[in-house]
Design a protein around this nucleic acid. Sequence first.
DNA 1: TTGTAAGCGTTATCAC
DNA 2: GTGATAACGCTTACAA
Lengths: 331, 331
Amino acid sequence: METVAERAGVSRALVSLVMNNSPKVSDSKRTAVLEAAAALGYLPNLHARSLAQQRTKTFGIIINDIHNPFFAEVVSGIESAADGHGFSVLILNGGRDPDRERRAVETHLQFQVEALILVGTRLDDGALVRASQVTPTVIVASGSDHPGVDTITANDRIGAALAVDHLVALGHTDIVHLDGGDNISSRHRAGGFELAMRAAGLEPRVLRAGDGEADAEAAMAQLVEDETVPTAIFAFNDLLAAGVLDILKSAELSVPNDVSVVGYDNTFIAELNHMSLTAVDQPRRMMGELAVRTVLERIEDNRTEPTNLDLSPTLAVRGSTGPPKRDRITR
Amino acid sequence: METVAERAGVSRALVSLVMNNSPKVSDSKRTAVLEAAAALGYLPNLHARSLAQQRTKTFGIIINDIHNPFFAEVVSGIESAADGHGFSVLILNGGRDPDRERRAVETHLQFQVEALILVGTRLDDGALVRASQVTPTVIVASGSDHPGVDTITANDRIGAALAVDHLVALGHTDIVHLDGGDNISSRHRAGGFELAMRAAGLEPRVLRAGDGEADAEAAMAQLVEDETVPTAIFAFNDLLAAGVLDILKSAELSVPNDVSVVGYDNTFIAELNHMSLTAVDQPRRMMGELAVRTVLERIEDNRTEPTNLDLSPTLAVRGSTGPPKRDRITR
DNA sequence: TTGTAAGCGTTATCAC
DNA sequence: GTGATAACGCTTACAA
């Protein structure tokens, strides 16, 4: 900075004013400084700036699993919204490990981020509440509801109902739900499934599965063996649905004629023509954008009461669902 | 810090020594400070530390596209290696946009990162060379070779040869390559394909495609219509291969009996049972780890000559390839 | 419109 | 082992 000032024939303070494009600098000096800076390849030191300014204009985001494309899209939403408000975004990967996430929170706080955005966090309530007391914190797309902490979610119960209603409208009466094992989203989706089924006057069948392709296959194999394959299957997520499709194929059951299949998340997998999976879709980008808005309200409008936004998912209808063309398979 | 010092009954300097766990602090004072810090929820300000210490112990990584699972795995490798050496990792998303990447480089430099790791960068040579003059810079998994800049790649030509050799060993003689359009990786893979084919005494057929599923489908539709479907297809990437599988299915050609299919990248898609795609695999994690080692050599052992590591891919054999069971389809 | 000087939260040097 | 004190690179009243 010193060097730039000398080269431009001004004081260090003036350089600072120019770098923060203050209006009270004469055009001539401004260009002189800018030229000198460019010539010297000068870049302001953000640490020094943060220290002096006592703010960072930065959000810290922690993404539960960088491998999960679902989260990636939420991040895109966050980035574009943050950008629009002049905030930068620092991403730390939680690696699906609560401990690593805890360290990531600490790192972010040490970086003096102005808010924490936790995408699909696995942190326990205690850690969450603690974080939210230190800095504005919002949880996006994590299944759990935390009392005093801001959250942005898409309603799993509504999502499940969308799937059921779609299948019922097509004429299905025998529908099985493959659940996602032991997590909050799974419980919500299974609960929504049961509710929607009963509301339609139908008996819900829920099968324990898990969150991987293999889990679906085990559950499905059982159905096939018992000859209790329903006319429609609603899976906890797209990956499970992929496993279902696979087993149906080996069992020589056609989709959607013999069995209709609905997934959840509407990921990339669902879109593959090979799959053409009807799936529940969560407004991922929007969720990211709302997360930014939520923390911004705390930072700039100093809101203090917690916000809990619960969006509605939608249904992306594709080739894996259709009217039932056969009776239920039973012994 | 002041407050912590008071509470522990010591000077500020002592607190600093404890926070950096210096050996020359008495155990009693150390625990006193630690307790005070915990009680007050004190976290050191990284900006102040960086400023005083004149180093950040941080790598800046720019990921070309956060949605691409291929890159995510490289990042995992980087993270674990960096962790092992006491470095933190800051991730910025390039968003497949050279301009955004350029800004990301600037942001990282302003953060005084000690090295830049560019994963699958789209930056032009000029920008790369400039960056590498300011700070140690390494490019991972980008197709291009940049003279003076450190690179970690997996050899596309060898990958293509692996695919060809596998198919030839199975008995295929009529093999078509669907290329990835206009990018360096694509050119290398196509070149490697042609070389390997000629080495096997076979005539290479290369079809222009692109990098999306739809591109594969257009190219394949043509083959089907002309009745010039080969006994094996080697696609530029897994996504193209997925498109190929799809078209083959509609054309009622069985895989691998009528046609064998090989993909590239060995992503998640290839692993789906529904796909069971034989695919060329790049050592993604390893590439990330080597990237860290490469910059570390510059930082700590002040290496100055450029490094260009070119790893060998491997082949993951799955159900989509087998011996040809029919003759070539021709008019 | 420009320059001076104090201060941001740490670390590091150097006496004690 | 411990405690002053001067950096680190920048911003920002305030004065000129």
